[in-house]
Write a protein that binds this DNA or RNA. Structure first.
Lengths: 342, 342
DNA sequence: TTGTACGCGTTATCAT
DNA sequence: ATGATAACGCGTACAA
């Protein structure tokens, strides 16, 4: 059923080797042979077999992108950038979704897919030290996000702690004195926003403000609903113990918090200032618009793809591999209505 | 470098055939042989070669998902569902992004990737009659969204016209008399929201209201910014010619329109009612919350994957293929604050 | 129950 | 410049 190079060769009256040469644009082929072969390809509707080519070449032309949830805007933007950048370089992208499940993360790195793809870009939620440790000889992995590569694998991210500190400092500088944090996570579970929590604490301390545990709300996840509930918990502290500013570890959390503020009749930013993290477009359209720490997501994606491709190339060559890198990408504190000075 | 079945066989003291049997869980293998082979696999770190297997089997285990933009929430949700469902059935998903470019759509369907994947789920923006027409013998395609398959390929979607009519009727029933439409598109370009515009028009006519061309704003695309600009254009019509209700072809357009209303001091829903389309979670959190036509997106994704898999199976078998189907999925009109009766 | 041998469609080496 | 031929790693018909 499928038409092969041999079929094309027969019709064009040449050998299969010549067809391969034409397909791969080998330089030394006479013009009329090219024409005959091209005609035969058209006529027969020949398409190269990706499987055969990968088997022969040992390269699949595929990268793997592993994220928790594709429909979380931050990951969606990341995916956009990765797919775009990979396509420009002639690579396809297999997307996998872990739904926050460590087992799925493991499978993505150790299962057959990891071998099928030439490399993996992973936005991990769980701790992965063990996985990476066993990963010797596997196809290369580039980490994106908060989890660092610990010298084992390349990592692309921003300085989460510095960014969180800057956001918190901004809240303090606009006159807030009781600044809360939403987004840390229950003790022994995923330590998602650990670095951001640390930055928050540092900024507070630098400003001579107390670090108040009651103002740190741990959430199971980073969705709008979690922010909504966390904010409700903060408001339940009562008028005098309530925060007058909140730094949220993600924009989605902040948008949820914003909703609770609205439904509770708490005015933003006059009674309560809010800053998120991620730089989502949604925050430009919320009411009030949302202040946020905006990482250069397109750049993160671009650098991740390039780093992965570089490592693939290095591994293909005989040269010994360069050591794993931690690359920091720029971010911006974007001040909007939700944290204007009062 | 890569370890093959032959390597494993040598170490386990069996033939390659036996290794293959163990890997594929062939029923009739003695227990101790299984143990020896398994041990050898572990020790050597053997991983099956996906390339060799696809070549041999003629199946890659990959589906292709083609969408305009991964970070548009509607497509992100679709991608989530497709990837989830495909994974459950043992298929990987290659994601491609057309960025609205017809050339890229064509390439996704006719390029090598189309052959690599066993089938394609396509959310097309351009007209694709020509592409589908030439697609005889290619791997199967399932269409998602507004563009129908015209009997050539399977199509999964909702009844866009009925849904748009229901949304418009709802606006009329809450007392709006000048109902506008945002989202049609410039004449000869993509006819993105054609069906939804038709439903809008039908509902107006049924209600005995005039179809006023000045209340139809055509947008280049379906993003927040387009909605923002379109709404500004509507408000510029002046106090007496302005609409008192707007049906937007997507939620993103509606959220943009909402922003313009807010910055222009137009009260929603009292002065202006708004209904979107897509059922995005973002609309549950906007201020005011957004009424919307919500298709069952998870179901669309699920049915799309199943339909594609069924067609792949049918094509593999000798049976002649069943005719292409148009499958309609349920939708819901979700009324929220933006269109409450005044 | 297991071993032998062949072919899937390509690319690449060796000749010519 | 092009033709014959050998791998690439795996699944399976056939044989034992």
């Amino acid at each position: 059923m499928p038409v092969t190079q041999a079929d094309v060769a027969r019709r064009a009256g040449v050998s299969q080797r010549t067809v391969s040469n034409v397909v791969n644009k080998f330089p030394h082929v006479s013009a009329d042979v090219v024409a005959r072969v091209t005609e035969a390809i058209e006529a027969l509707g020949y398409t190269p077999s990706h499987a055969a080519r990968s088997l022969r070449l040992g390269r699949s032309g595929l990268l793997q992108l592993v994220v928790p949830e594709l429909d979380v805007p931050y990951f969606a933007e990341l995916a956009r950038g990765v797919v775009k950048c990979a396509e420009e370089r002639g690579f396809g992208v297999m997307v996998r979704q872990t739904l926050g499940d460590r087992e799925r993360e493991r499978d993505a790195l150790e299962g057959p897919a990891a071998e099928h793809a030439e490399g993996t870009i992973l936005s991990a939620v769980g701790s992965i030290e063990d996985i990476l440790a066993t990963g010797r000889g596997r196809s290369p992995v580039v980490l994106i996000g908060e989890r660092t590569g610990m010298g084992l694998v390349d990592h692309i991210g921003i300085d989460d702690t510095a960014a969180a500190a800057e956001a918190t400092r901004h809240l303090v500088e606009t006159g807030r004195r009781r600044v809360a944090f939403i987004g840390a996570d229950p003790a022994d579970s995923l330590r998602m926003a650990e670095l951001r929590l640390r930055g928050y604490e540092q900024a507070l301390t630098s400003a001579g403000l107390p670090f108040d545990e009651t103002l740190v709300v741990r959430t199971r996840s980073y969705h709008r609903k979690d922010g909504e509930e966390a904010m409700a918990a903060l408001l339940a502290l009562g008028p005098d113990r309530r925060p007058d500013g909140v730094f949220c570890a993600t924009d989605l959390l902040a948008l949820g918090a914003l909703r609770t503020a609205r439904t509770s009749g708490v005015a933003v930013p006059t009674e309560l200032a809010l800053v998120g993290f991620d730089g989502l477009e949604e925050g430009e359209y919320s009411a009030p618009t949302l202040s946020t720490v905006a990482p250069d997501k397109a750049e993160i994606a671009r650098v991740a793809v390039e780093t992965l491709l570089a490592r693939i190339a290095a591994r293909a060559g005989v040269e010994d591999e360069p050591p794993a890198q931690d690359l920091l990408i720029a971010f911006d504190l974007v001040v909007r209505e939700s944290s204007r000075a009062v």
